[in-house]
């Protein structure tokens, strides 16, 4: 008995091809993601004659070890690193740190609540958010050097989480909650648009967005007020 060879589903093949391309591009791009620029330093250049990274204003050589010289491609890719306050690798990890937590919460938390009710939601708060906090936001010197380990660049601290705060953490703190709320907003918006396709009597995209705007604004303002109130502790002289 012979079995006829059948090609897999074209959709499955496309999916597999996309996965392969993505994985390969991440691996191959790794050498170009190195930290080639110092954030806030706007005048870096790569001297192709001496093969060295230099400060154009002073002519100072930043990296003298030939083995550690970034490629010209890496320097070119890092054109906007000083503006963004982070290197290429950090840009990449920040985007995917946000995408991971948004996807995980969008998929799992709702199911936990559906199955276990309030207990599932409380469990999800600790297990999902706590675990993703460790991968996204953990800081250097936790429990050992509470202020963080100072960065060699002369300002800010070293960061080890996926989500990198720009300019070595000297800017305001941007929490992964932003990615979560944007992810859930996007997912629920797309779901409603799909429902609208199936049932034209339902509200459309513009109506949904305008309806959500006052709700979003009130929670954003609430967050600003709450954060500012806690921030006032800094004026009491507390050195926590």
């Amino acid at each position: 008995m012979t079995t006829k060879f059948q090609l897999p589903n074209p959709k499955l093949l496309t999916g597999i091809a996309l996965c392969v391309v993505f994985t390969l591009s991440v691996c191959l791009a790794a050498p170009c993601l190195a930290d080639t620029t110092d954030p806030k330093t706007q005048s870096l250049a790569f001297d192709t004659v001496t093969n060295q990274l230099i400060l154009t204003e002073t002519g100072e050589t930043l990296i003298t070890d030939p083995a550690k010289q970034p490629s010209a491609l890496a320097v070119w890719l890092g054109t906007y690193n000083p503006t963004l306050g982070m290197c290429n690798a950090s840009i990449f990890t920040t985007i995917f740190g946000g995408a991971f937590v948004a996807f995980f919460i969008a998929i799992c938390w709702g199911k936990l609540v559906e199955i276990y009710g309030a207990a599932g939601g409380l469990f999800g708060g600790g297990v999902i958010v706590g675990t993703f906090w460790v991968i996204n936001h953990k800081l250097p010197g936790i429990g050992i050097a509470p202020g963080g380990i100072p960065h060699d660049a002369g300002f800010g601290i070293y960061q080890y989480g996926l989500i990198v705060q720009a300019f070595h953490g000297t800017g305001p703190w941007v929490d992964m909650g932003l990615a979560v709320c944007v992810g859930l907003f996007t997912m629920s918006f797309l779901e409603r648009l799909r429902a609208k396709k199936l049932d034209p009597t339902l509200p459309g995209g513009a109506a949904l967005l305008s309806e959500s705007f006052p709700r979003a604004l009130s929670v954003i303002l609430g967050g600003i007020a709450g954060g500012a109130i806690v921030g006032l502790i800094g004026f009491t002289g507390a050195r926590l």
Partner: peptide, 12 residues
């Protein structure tokens, strides 16, 4: 997550 994000910025 929305108020947490805005609170983080305002707090800092």
């Amino acid at each position: 997550g929305m108020p947490i994000a805005s609170a983080g910025i305002a707090w800092a």
